[in-house]
C-alpha cells in the first residue's frame, strides 16, 4: 500500500535571536488511504506544529529546516505559496481545536460553506448551496436549510464543530488534519464528534491525522498512533498494541495516567517532572531525566527508531535487543 501522506525526517525550528529552537525533530510517519493516525503528546510536544507544517501554514519565525512532506507521492513542502494555497482545503482539509473561534462571526454558515466550495470548484452558486446543504446533513446537523442562514453564535459548540468539519470536507480532500477537534467540547459532544470522524473516514475513505493530548480519544478512534515527546516520536504503531503493551517508558507512563473504571488504585500513576522546554532539551534521549529505566547511554546518544513487533520505538531498552 502506497502512503497517502508521507513525512520524512521533518524538522521544524523557530528562529530566535538566541539561535533556533527545534520544535519538531526528525519526525517520520505515513498515513494510508482511509486511515486514522492519532498523534498524542503533551502540550509543546510538537503535535500541532507538525500538523501546521503539513498544511503549509507555518508562520515566521517557524520554518521547516529539514525533511520532506509528500502527498500522494509528490513533494508539497517546497510548493510556491499560491500552489500550496490551492492544495489547502482541496486535497488536505483542516479541523481546528476551538469551534467557537474557528468560524467568522460576521458571516452565516452558508456564506462560509459556499465561499469555500466556490474557491475550489467551478460550480454555480446554486450548486454550491445545494452541496453545502448536503454537507451539513452529512455531518449530522438537523434542519440544514435553517442552519444555512444562521450565524455561528446561534449554534452550540458541538454544532459549530460539525460545521467546521463540513467546511473541511467542502472539496472532498483525501486527508484531513484534525487538531484537537474535541478538546473544547463537553464529554458527550466529544463522543458524538469522534463517532462522526470515524464514520466519515470509513464512508468517504478520508484519511485523518488526529492530533490530541487525550489518549482516550486516540484509543477509541485511531488505527495507529504516534506518541510524541519533546518534538520526537517515542513510539508509533497500531493503537491496540500500544495501548495494551507500550514499549517506550514514556508511553507506559502515559497509559498509567488514564483513569480506568473499576481499577483498584486510588491514585493515578503519574510521570514525575515535566517535559523540557524547547531551549533546554537534554542530550541523548529527551526523556531520560524522567525515565525510571534509564541506561548508561541514554544521556549521551539519541536512540534511533527501530522496528519491534510491527511498530517502531525509539528507546535504548529495545534498540539493543533488536539490533543485538
Amino acid at each position: 500500500m502506497s502512503a497517502l501522506l508521507e513525512v520524512r525526517h521533518l524538522r521544524v525550528a523557530f528562529e530566535t535571536r538566541r539561535g533556533p529552537l527545534v520544535a519538531v525533530d526528525d519526525i517520520s510517519l505515513q498515513i494510508g488511504e482511509g486511515e486514522i493516525l492519532g498523534m498524542v503528546g503533551e502540550s509543546g510536544a510538537g503535535k500541532s506544529v507538525t500538523g501546521t507544517a503539513i498544511l503549509g501554514l507555518l508562520e515566521p519565525p517557524a520554518r521547516i529546516t529539514a525533511g520532506e512532506i509528500l502527498l500522494e507521492g509528490s513533494r508539497i513542502d517546497n510548493l510556491a505559496p499560491e500552489a500550496m494555497r490551492r492544495l489547502r482545503g482541496k486535497r488536505i482539509g483542516a479541523i481546528f481545536q476551538d469551534p467557537l473561534t474557528a468560524l467568522d462571526p460576521l458571516f452565516t454558515i452558508g456564506q462560509q460553506l459556499v465561499e469555500t466550495i466556490l474557491t475550489h470548484d467551478a460550480v454555480g452558486a446554486r450548486a454550491a448551496r445545494d452541496r453545502a446543504l448536503k454537507l451539513l446533513g452529512e455531518v449530522g446537523i438537523p434542519a440544514p436549510e435553517k442552519r444555512l442562514d444562521q450565524y455561528p453564535h446561534q449554534l452550540s459548540g458541538g454544532m459549530r464543530q460539525r460545521v467546521v468539519i463540513a467546511l473541511a470536507l467542502c472539496a472532498e480532500p483525501r486527508l484531513v488534519i484534525a487538531d484537537e477537534p474535541t478538546t473544547a467540547l463537553d464529554v458527550s459532544t466529544q463522543a458524538q464528534i469522534i463517532e462522526l470522524l470515524k464514520r466519515l473516514a470509513r464512508t468517504r475513505g478520508t484519511a485523518v491525522l488526529l492530533i490530541t493530548h487525550d489518549m482516550g480519544v486516540i484509543a477509541e478512534t485511531a488505527d495507529r498512533v504516534a506518541v510524541l515527546y519533546a518534538g520526537r516520536i517515542a513510539e508509533i504503531g497500531p493503537v491496540r498494541e500500544i495501548v495494551h503493551a507500550p514499549l517506550h517508558p514514556y508511553t507506559t507512563g502515559l497509559m498509567g495516567a488514564i483513569p480506568k473504571l473499576g481499577a483498584l488504585r486510588s491514585r493515578l500513576a503519574q510521570i514525575d517532572g515535566a517535559m523540557p522546554r524547547l531551549d533546554a532539551i537534554p542530550p541523548g534521549c529527551a526523556f531520560h531525566p524522567r525515565c525510571t529505566q534509564r541506561l548508561a547511554q541514554c544521556d549521551r546518544e539519541i536512540p534511533r527508531a527501530v522496528a519491534v513487533d510491527g511498530r517502531e520505538v525509539a528507546c535504548w531498552l529495545h534498540g539493543e535487543s533488536s539490533r543485538g
Binding site: 501554514l57 482545503g89 482539509g93 481546528f96 460576521l106 465561499e115 469555500t116 474557491t119 467546511l167
Partner: peptide, 26 residues
C-alpha cells in the same frame, strides 16, 4: 491573528477573500 482567519487560510481561501472579506469586515 484570530483563529477564524487561520481557519479561513486552512480552508484554502485566496488572500483576497481572507483579507478583504473576513479580516476587513471584522
Amino acid at each position: 491573528r484570530a483563529d477564524h482567519i487561520r481557519f479561513a487560510r486552512a480552508r484554502g481561501l485566496p488572500d483576497r477573500l481572507v483579507h478583504f472579506r473576513h479580516a476587513l469586515r471584522n
